[in-house]
Amino acid sequence: MSEARTRPVLDVRRIYAEDAALALPRGQEVLGRWPDAEVVPVASHWNIPEVHGDERNVQRWVRIKTEALVLGVKKSLLTRPNGRSADFIAPSTANGCAMACAYCYVPRRKGYSNPVTVFANIEQIAKHVARNIAKQGPKTEPNQCDTDSWVYDIGENSDCSVDAMLSDNVRDLCDLFRMSPTAKASFATKYVNRDLLDWDPMGRTRIRFSLMPHETAKVTDIRTSPIAERIAAVNDFVDAGYEVHLNFSPVILTPTWESDWAGLLDQVDDVLSAAAKAQLAAEVIFLTHNEQLHEVNLGWHPRAEDLLWRPDLQEQKFSQNGAVNVRYRSGMKGQLVERFRELVAEHLPSCRIRYAF
């Protein structure tokens, strides 16, 4: 695993590009960021045998994520209702991730490794989102997503902090929400990109820093910013005009999970400023895993599966799209969620839990 710890997050050497993406200004801008990269024409960003769907790529998991980039056009523009972390899920401006968290669900959908695909038709995506915001009108009833603004998750299938290193797509959407008094953008991240501190979001972008105990993160959160760095960044992002929430996710059961989380929550309580605590909220998500991803992980990072694959504690769960996942057993999970709420109340009392499951 030494390569995963020492290689840069991005060292783009090959750009797989659809012709339609290259014809757009954003596509050309991305090429300009990586002028020495080899450009490989492809018919579809969804079907690139060298990076998707080939089980042999599990041996090159980190290298592909570091060196490969895909340029495509987002063909289906759909804003979907959500109701948990956000009111709506906006169309993605990217798909895939340069990081390699062992529990990530995206490889189950698109194939092995799944480096970042940047969608070049950002103007079309932004216009779609703007129309959807206008269609909603003002938010008249508060809910768990927000009291007075419609919340749009703009990073369902990627990490926007890393995406912002590849193109201006994320900034373009954040600028759109900056001028939208009835709505705000939201995304979860495991990477601290301090370039975002200069964006002046005026409270219209919510960043959710994902946290878990340090020792667990060392095994499962590969190529991400260290947990201590994420915690330390919260105050700076609040001061820069962001709303900053926390994402306690995934909660992974280890023999020391309660004491580990108590220590982490104490650290957050010690580090966060009064201003950060005044606006703080969190979501709590216990681990959901997948047998297919378990098999993939055994090929590149089996140590993580010692924590993630626990048949003695887990049961099958059928997702809305028909996939067979595993989660902690239902009778036990309710007790676990309640215990987690108690830990937060005891060790980080300023943190309101928006939802937990």
Rank of each mutant, 00 (worst) to 15 (best):
Q314A: 13
Q314I: 02
Q314L: 02
Q314G: 03
Q314H: 09
Q314R: 05
E315S: 13
E315G: 07
E315A: 08
E315P: 06
E315K: 06
E315D: 09
Q316I: 09
Q316H: 15
Q316T: 14
Q316A: 13
K317V: 08
K317E: 10
F318T: 15
F318H: 15
F318G: 14
F318Y: 11
S319M: 06
S319N: 07
S319F: 04
S319D: 11
Q320N: 07
Q320P: 02
Q320R: 13
N321V: 15
N321T: 15
N321S: 15
N321C: 13
N321W: 13
G322T: 01
G322A: 05
G322K: 03
G322C: 03
G322S: 12
A323V: 02
A323K: 10
A323L: 13
A323D: 12
A323E: 12
V324R: 05
V324A: 15
V324M: 11
V324C: 15
V324S: 13
N325Q: 13
N325K: 07
N325L: 14
N325M: 13
V326H: 03
V326C: 04
V326E: 04
V326P: 00
R327P: 01
R327D: 08
R327K: 15
R327C: 12
R327N: 11
Y328G: 00
Y328L: 04
R329V: 05
S330L: 07
S330T: 10
S330G: 10
S330D: 12
G331I: 06
G331R: 08
M332Y: 05
M332P: 03
M332L: 09
M332F: 10
M332N: 04
M332T: 15
M332Q: 11
K333C: 08
K333V: 00
K333T: 01
K333N: 11
K333H: 10
K333A: 02
K333P: 02
G334N: 08
G334E: 14
G334L: 04
G334M: 05
G334S: 10
G334W: 00
Q335T: 11
Q335H: 11
Q335C: 09
Q335G: 12
Q335N: 11
Q335E: 13
Q335M: 12
L336T: 07
L336V: 02
L336I: 02
V337T: 07
V337E: 06
V337C: 07
E338R: 10
E338A: 12
E338D: 14
E338F: 00
E338I: 04
E338Q: 14
E338W: 05
R339D: 05
R339F: 07
R339C: 07
R339H: 08
F340G: 02
R341I: 06
R341E: 10
R341C: 14
R341S: 05
R341T: 03
R341L: 15
E342V: 08
E342L: 10
E342D: 11
E342H: 11
L343P: 00
L343V: 01
L343I: 06
V344A: 05
V344Q: 03
V344R: 00
V344M: 06
V344P: 00
V344Y: 02
V344G: 00
V344I: 08
A345R: 10
A345V: 03
A345G: 14
A345N: 03
A345E: 10
A345I: 01
A345W: 01
A345S: 08
E346P: 01
E346T: 11
E346F: 03
E346K: 14
E346M: 05
H347L: 08
L348D: 01
L348Q: 00
L348K: 00
L348S: 03
